[in-house]
Amino acid sequence: ATNIVGKVKWYNSTKNAGFIEQDNGGKDVFVHKSAVDAAGLHSLEEGQDVIFDLEEKQGKAYAVNLRIK
């Protein structure tokens, strides 16, 4: 899926990971530091509006192509 709108639920820069809550009510999506880095960002803030694509690896959904809304 592409161009999904959501809000950062939480992001821990020590653990280099967090979750994004989908505005469409879907399951929360894992976001890794690699996606944050690829977006040219240093970190994510709780409640921040984002747009992202979903990629599945080994049955788990990940946020990729992250951008700030």
Score class of each variant (00 low, 15 high):
11 Y>K: 02
14 T>C: 14
51 I>N: 02
26 G>V: 07
67 R>G: 03
41 L>H: 05
24 N>P: 06
32 H>E: 08
14 T>Y: 14
27 K>N: 10
51 I>K: 04
3 N>I: 03
59 G>P: 01
37 D>Y: 14
22 Q>A: 09
59 G>W: 04
6 G>F: 02
40 G>L: 05
5 V>H: 15
14 T>N: 12
49 D>V: 15
13 S>Y: 10
9 K>W: 02
11 Y>Q: 02
14 T>A: 13
22 Q>S: 09
66 L>Y: 00
54 L>R: 06
30 F>N: 03
62 Y>W: 13
40 G>M: 07
10 W>H: 05
48 Q>H: 05
26 G>Y: 08
50 V>P: 00
54 L>K: 07
65 N>W: 02
20 I>A: 01
23 D>W: 13
28 D>H: 09
35 A>F: 04
54 L>M: 11
11 Y>H: 02
55 E>G: 06
22 Q>H: 08
45 E>Q: 13
7 K>L: 03
34 S>N: 10
30 F>L: 06
24 N>R: 10
47 G>Q: 04
24 N>G: 12
49 D>A: 15
6 G>S: 01
7 K>T: 08
66 L>H: 01
47 G>E: 03
10 W>A: 04
32 H>S: 11
46 E>D: 09
29 V>E: 00
51 I>E: 07
16 N>L: 09
49 D>M: 15
49 D>F: 15
35 A>D: 04
51 I>W: 08
1 A>M: 13
61 A>Q: 13
7 K>M: 05
10 W>Q: 03
17 A>Q: 14
1 A>S: 11
55 E>M: 14
23 D>I: 15
50 V>H: 00
40 G>K: 07
52 F>Y: 06
56 E>I: 15
66 L>G: 00
13 S>Q: 12
46 E>K: 15
67 R>Y: 05
36 V>F: 05
61 A>Y: 15
25 G>M: 07
67 R>E: 04
38 A>Y: 06
64 V>E: 03
34 S>R: 10
68 I>N: 05
52 F>T: 00
67 R>W: 04
10 W>F: 09
25 G>D: 07
2 T>H: 12
33 K>N: 05
8 V>F: 08
58 Q>P: 06
54 L>V: 13
65 N>G: 03
63 A>T: 02
65 N>F: 04
37 D>W: 14
54 L>Q: 04
30 F>Y: 11
2 T>I: 13
20 I>D: 00
45 E>I: 14
59 G>Y: 04
50 V>T: 02
10 W>D: 02
39 A>G: 05
46 E>V: 15
20 I>M: 03
66 L>K: 00
66 L>M: 03
31 V>T: 02
52 F>P: 00
26 G>F: 08
28 D>M: 12
24 N>A: 10
60 K>I: 10
30 F>K: 04
55 E>D: 07
3 N>L: 05
44 L>I: 08
47 G>I: 02
13 S>W: 10
22 Q>K: 08
46 E>F: 11
35 A>M: 06
61 A>V: 15
69 K>P: 14
10 W>L: 04
18 G>M: 05
20 I>S: 00
19 F>P: 00
29 V>W: 04
12 N>R: 08
20 I>Y: 00
7 K>I: 07
59 G>I: 02
56 E>H: 13
10 W>T: 05
48 Q>P: 01
34 S>P: 04
62 Y>H: 08
51 I>L: 09
16 N>P: 03
62 Y>D: 02
58 Q>I: 07
61 A>W: 15
42 H>C: 14
44 L>T: 01
52 F>C: 02
52 F>N: 00
23 D>R: 15
3 N>S: 08
24 N>H: 10
55 E>W: 14
16 N>S: 11
67 R>C: 05
61 A>P: 08
63 A>W: 01
58 Q>C: 14
42 H>E: 12
45 E>C: 14
12 N>I: 07
54 L>H: 02
64 V>A: 06
40 G>W: 04
5 V>S: 15
18 G>K: 01
57 K>N: 10
14 T>K: 14
60 K>E: 07
42 H>Y: 12
55 E>L: 13
30 F>T: 03
28 D>Q: 10
69 K>R: 12
63 A>R: 00
61 A>M: 14
57 K>R: 13
20 I>T: 00
34 S>G: 08
68 I>Y: 07
49 D>Q: 14
18 G>D: 00
6 G>T: 01
35 A>K: 03
8 V>T: 02
18 G>Y: 07
38 A>F: 07
41 L>G: 03
64 V>F: 05
19 F>T: 06
37 D>A: 12
37 D>P: 02
49 D>G: 14
24 N>F: 09
47 G>H: 05
5 V>A: 13
49 D>W: 15
13 S>E: 11
47 G>V: 02
50 V>N: 00
29 V>Q: 01
16 N>V: 04
49 D>K: 14
38 A>T: 07
47 G>M: 04
7 K>A: 04
21 E>L: 12
7 K>N: 04
59 G>M: 04
48 Q>W: 14
